[in-house]
Nucleic acid binder design. Structure first.
Length: 797
DNA sequence: ACGGGTAAGCT
DNA sequence: AGCTTACC
């Protein structure tokens, strides 16, 4: 019987006398066949079209004499010089190791036929064993040459010794799975970006496109970057090329890109797109980089290039802005302006990539994935290949995922609510990774104990990189310091993902019990932290997983004393667990679990929590709540009333800008699917789809609709009054004032706990008969008792 | 192709 | 009750 892994082995990439030489070159015979060469000139024919994309151009002189002359299809891979590249090719050609594993496991053997594969015989790796019995299946060909002591130790540890000059404009790609030593990066944004690049070659569109394709060939970039490049630039250029019959040969050796549908997930959202696999090049979409960045930061309202550039502060003050609808006219009338605009797009994309691509760049040095692939895969995949790689190296079998679920998570509790201060914030440094290291967390199925080994190595690497970064900084070597900082942060990303991997149902090394052990240990540490801070006279306000907010005792006033207090408690924590001082604040409003406002000593407010900052609501509501909390913190009751009046009047007089009352929602299915589900009663009507239908929009999954509620009165269901934001006209505003006043009222409820009922209704009253006076209205600072009274809870006291 | 739990708001 | 958003 032929195993899937066996297939790979039969397509042995290593050939020649000593079978250790690897591939130095490849020559394309047909669409599905290549002939590969080793250093001695031995060659072998290889069939696998999926193999092609994983070859990268290298130094063509290596192949001199091996390849028929004058053949334009010639291209080259660089596998011979490095075990890493060898491994990369093997791994990649093994199209989907998960699929291969499933397949193997489907061919179970033994009495129950349900035992799966337990281990291959180390001494004879062409056999595998299950729990009870023996052997039956060909597994790996004698691994002598295949996985020869390479990756784990040599490669993934050696990275710090490589002086990678991380200059985004000229990166050293020698160890990056990217063939050439110097990486040329072309950034572009959209068709206008190309136009800018092609400034001197402008002519008809046909000539322009020809020149564009030729330019890529000439520049021969290893990496092509763009903002929304997968969903706009590449398909756009391709379509236009098709129209004129111009070959879209933007890959190495004039090869066209291969496209296939793909999807990428950012937390709960998933985006479908067409992946462009350009032979010999890596495509990086900076839009994905931004979204990935924002998962942890959650600070951006828009992922558009201009908004992002402003957010990061690299939007030049004299940047040219052009409205989309003016582009056609500018092309005719004001070329220079359009080109300036397009070039600014390119510059911003470049800046964006320099900022956000470093982590993937370094991860790709460590993982058996290419740079482009590293940017597309998830966290679990990154962890898993590290584990699998080591298992392959040691020729040990690979387990199957276990079924089950995780039962516990972080400990969260609020002890005090209201307006409080002064505040100290302390948190356990890297709580879960520290627990995993100190408590020997290891998945049960990980018989070789690779998991803790990887974790520990990553930790050491990170320290080393951090150290190096500091040293380089001291030497005034800023660019190198930044390189090592980027490197340490890419290690951190993997470290932090390791806990999540334990509880991941699809992970082949998952272990829910171990994941629970991590979180429950975290809970006891959090509780111990509470006890110790309270024992020192602190009043604990809120604890969430690894962080604690508390009011220090009255005698602790200066920051140095606060820090001392934290380090005192830190010393009492279990071995390997450290608490860090992470901030001090003048005041805070403790509102709910995971919902609070902090006021710094510079009087800057930080607002946290979905009920206070949710981006799903209208912007005016968010602004109102934010400014209202600022008034609460400064105890400005009259100001709060004035704020309410201000927004009330703005709504009534149609003085809000359209962007302030629109809402943006993304669609999860097509309009057709929606209509069907509504008809069959599977779902209820939704305003966004109704708007799409009404406007005849062609909608696909993931599309976003920005809309508002129009008309008057509250009578009928609001989905009939939904309108696209683009339908709104300043001259004839038709937003539904009744509806938005009601929304304002709902936001006012957030201030309810801070006032007596009669005071509250006076504060947020539209009564204009009597002028408002803050006199006699008293702010409730301790809002503990304003919550609904629950007699049951007395039993607990 | 795929990290986790906890918690609040909205429909 | 189920979905979305946010915190860690």
């Amino acid at each position: 019987m032929e195993s899937i892994i066996g297939d790979i082995v039969n397509n042995d990439l290593l050939f020649g006398k000593d079978k250790e030489q690897g591939i130095v070159g490849a020559y394309q015979l047909s669409d599905t066949q290549i002939r590969v060469f080793n250093r001695n000139g031995d060659s072998v024919t290889h069939h696998d079209d999926t193999f092609f994309p994983y070859f990268f151009l290298s130094d063509s002189s290596l192949l001199d004499g091996f390849v028929p002359e004058g053949d334009e299809k010639f291209w080259l891979v660089k596998l011979g010089g490095s075990n890493y590249y060898q491994y990369l090719a093997i791994f990649k050609s093994w199209r989907n190791y998960r699929g291969a594993l499933d397949s193997l496991n489907n061919r179970r053997f033994g009495e129950s036929a349900d035992q799966g594969i337990q281990s291959p015989a180390i001494e004879n790796s062409s056999h595998i064993y299950n729990k009870g019995d023996a052997v039956t299946q060909y597994f790996l060909q004698s691994g002598k040459t295949l996985f020869k002591g390479m990756i784990f130790d040599d490669l993934y540890r050696m990275q710090l010794d490589i002086e990678t000059n991380y200059n985004p404009e000229k990166r050293d790609g020698a160890s990056n799975g990217i063939g050439s030593d110097e990486i040329i990066i072309v950034s572009f944004c959209d068709n206008r970006g190309w136009e800018a690049v092609l400034h001197s070659k402008m002519g008809s569109e046909r000539e322009l496109l020809k020149a564009a394709v030729a330019l890529i060939g000439e520049k021969d970039p290893d990496v092509i970057e763009g903002h929304n490049i997968f969903s706009f630039d590449l398909p756009y250029l391709q379509r236009r090329c098709e129209k004129y019959g111009i070959p879209f040969s933007i890959g190495r050796n004039n090869l066209p890109p291969k496209t296939y549908p793909s999807s990428i997930r950012f937390a709960e959202r998933s985006i479908d797109y067409t992946f462009y696999d350009i032979p010999g090049r890596h495509v990086i979409d900076t839009l994905f980089l931004v979204q990935s960045y924002d998962i942890s930061k959650r600070s951006m309202q828009s992922y558009g290039l201009k908004a992002v550039a402003k957010h990061f502060g690299f939007a030049s003050p004299d940047r040219t802005y052009v409205d989309y609808k003016d582009i056609a006219a500018l092309w005719e009338n004001n070329h220079a302006k359009l080109l300036a605009y397009a070039l600014d797009d390119v510059r911003e994309t470049r800046a964006l990539s320099s900022l956000l691509s470093a982590s993937n760049f370094y991860l790709s040095q460590m993982l058996p994935y290419t740079y482009a692939m590293t940017a597309r895969i998830g966290q679990a995949a990154k962890i898993e290949v590290l584990l699998v790689r080591e298992y392959l190296r040691l020729k040990h079998s690979i387990p199957r995922p276990t079924a089950g679920q995780q039962h516990s998570g972080g400990y969260t509790e609020v002890f005090l609510k209201g307006i409080l201060g002064p505040i100290v914030y302390a948190d356990v440094e890297s709580l879960y990774p520290s627990i995993m290291l100190s408590y020997d967390i290891c998945p049960k199925s990980d018989e070789l104990k690779v998991f803790p080994g990887v974790l520990n190595d990553l930790k050491e690497l990170r320290f080393k990189a951090k150290d190096r970064s500091l040293k380089e900084k001291e030497c005034g070597n800023k660019s190198l310091a930044d390189n090592f900082d980027a490197m340490q942060s890419s290690f951190k990303i993997v470290i932090n993902a390791m806990y999540g991997y334990l509880g991941f149902s699809g992970g082949i090394f998952n272990d829910f019990a171990e994941a629970d052990r991590v979180t429950s240990t975290g809970q006891s540490i959090a509780k111990k932290m509470i006890v110790e801070f309270e024992a020192r006279g602190c009043r604990v306000i809120e604890v969430d997983t690894d962080g604690i907010l508390f009011i220090p005792p009255p005698e602790v006033i200066r920051e140095t004393d606060e820090r001392l207090l934290v380090s005192e408690v830190s010393a009492l924590m279990p071995e390997g667990i450290k608490i860090g001082f992470d901030g001090r604040y003048r005041k805070m409003i403790s509102y709910m679990k995971k919902n609070y406002a902090l006021l710094s000593y510079e009087n800057v407010m930080i607002l946290k929590g979905s009920s206070l900052t949710s981006r799903s609501g209208e912007k005016f509501g968010r602004d109102f709540v934010r400014r209202g909390f600022e008034k609460l913190l400064s105890e400005d009751i009259e100001g709060l009333h004035n704020l309410f009046t201000e927004y009330r009047n703005k709504i009534l007089n149609h003085e809000l800008d359209v962007t302030e009352f629109t809402k943006t929602e993304s669609l999860k299915s097509t309009v057709e699917q929606y209509a069907e589900d509504v008809k069959s009663g599977k779902r209820s009507k939704a305003i966004t789809y109704e708007i799409a239908i009404k406007n005849g929009l062609r909608v696909t999954k993931g599309d976003r609709i920005t809309y508002y509620i129009s008309g008057t009165g509250a009578g009928s269901a609001s989905y009939e009054k939904g309108k696209l934001s683009t339908e709104w006209k300043k001259e004839k505003p038709d937003e539904n004032t009744h509806f938005y006043l009601k929304r304002l009222d709902e936001h006012c409820q957030k201030f309810l706990p801070f006032f007596k009922p009669q005071d509250f209704s006076m504060l947020f009253s539209d009564d204009t008969l009597f002028s408002f006076s803050a006199e006699g209205i008293e702010l409730i600072r301790d809002i503990r008792h304003t919550e609904s009274y629950n007699p049951g809870s007395d039993l607990a006291l």
